[in-house]
Design a protein around this nucleic acid. Structure first.
Lengths: 123, 123
DNA sequence: GTTGACCTTCAAGTAAACTTTAAGGTTATT
DNA sequence: AATAACCTTAAAGTTTACTTGAAGGTCAAC
């Protein structure tokens, strides 16, 4: 199939597919005599694995490393562990921010009820 | 005080302070005859409020809107609610991703123990 | 009176993951 | 043979929050 069909079947735009190829994340496909890229089902599976991994929270750079370094079971498990730990940190940060916001909201609310206009004016 | 001192006292670099000014987030300060920016304690408080808000998860763009629109209690409360809801969505997403990763890890682990080499090869 | 530290503006660079544009070649259909 | 739909490359634009660089002005000290 040509790039347009692969794009349509995967929901990944043709320019994004070319971009992945440029970045060395999707292997270079064969070409027709005309120069058109030709993909098969394996290409499609690889592309879908890339998208799945992105969805799981890996960056293209991380994928590139996982793909270029020869990695073994252990290395892969460690990468996944590291990613999960990173997510946990992000979750903790978001929770803390949200708690701070809640506090701020309550502080403001009380101040307003007390008729004060707390100093949050930047103008 | 001049920009360097403000920078040092707040831990915000001089170029970042100028950037906030360019973006219309920090008001334009007075100038010396020489053209040097002159700040006072109020400027410093405003700068620190900006950094606090960024830390709470607001973007510069959001701050700009909160600063330029005349906002009232209700509008501010709604902005905070919206931000908290956004954070909640992000937390949920991270949790889901993490759970997916855990599942993947277990699947891989089992496959390996069964002597299979699951197809996660992109090369 | 010059050295060094500090200030000015404007423009461009950075990271991430793409998208858009420009200019042009190919293929299928009419 | 012309038109549309599709493909090619290379380069530049997008977003966010800055940082860096270039070229030059100012100020305090020696």
């Amino acid at each position: 199939m040509k790039i347009g069909e692969l794009a349509q079947r995967t929901g990944v735009s043709a320019s994004t597919i070319r971009y992945y190829e440029d970045q060395g994340i999707l292997p270079k496909p064969k070409r027709q005599a005309s120069g058109y890229r030709v993909y098969d089902d394996t290409s499609m599976q690889k592309l879908m694995l890339i998208r799945y991994s992105l969805q799981l929270g890996f960056s293209l750079q991380e994928l590139q490393q996982l793909l270029t370094d020869e990695y073994d079971q252990q290395a892969l498990m460690q990468s996944i562990d590291a990613k999960m730990a990173e997510m946990e940190r992000n979750i903790a940060k978001l929770r803390a921010q949200k708690a701070e916001l809640k506090k701020l909201q309550q502080t403001l609310s009380q101040a307003w009820q007390a008729g004060q206009c707390p100093n949050i004016d930047l103008g």
